[in-house]
C-alpha cells in the first residue's frame, strides 16, 4: 500500500501521500483506530484495511478527489 500511495502522488499534484510508521506515532494510531496494518485513510473519511488493488484504490481516490457532477434539473 505504501508504494501504491506514493505512486499515485507521483502522478497527481492533487495528491499528498504519507506513509507513517505507526508505532512511532501512537496518537495517530489512536485517532484512526489502527489495529492492523496496512491501514489507509483517505481525506479523513475513507478508511481501508489491508492491501488494495490499484483499480479499486483509484476509485476511492476519485471518490475523495472529485466534486460530484451537478445533475441537471
Amino acid at each position: 500500500m505504501a508504494r501504491l500511495a506514493h505512486k499515485m502522488a507521483l502522478e497527481s499534484p492533487r495528491i499528498r501521500a504519507d506513509v507513517i510508521e505507526i508505532t512511532e506515532f501512537p496518537h495517530l494510531a489512536q485517532r484512526y483506530a489502527v489495529r492492523a496494518v496496512p491501514k489507509t485513510v483517505v481525506n479523513e473519511k475513507i478508511q481501508l484495511s489491508g492491501a488494495q488493488p490499484e483499480a479499486q484504490f483509484l476509485q476511492y481516490i476519485l471518490q475523495a478527489g472529485r466534486k460530484p457532477p451537478k445533475t441537471g434539473a
Binding site: 502522478e11 499528498r16 491501514k39 481516490i61
Partner: peptide
Amino acid sequence: NSNLSAKTKEELATLTEDVHIQVFVTP
C-alpha cells in the same frame, strides 16, 4: 515513471480536489 496503468493516470488527471492519503505501516 510510476508504472501505474494508463487508465489510472488518465483518471488521476481529472482530480479537482486535494486528496490526502495516509498509509499506516509497522517496521
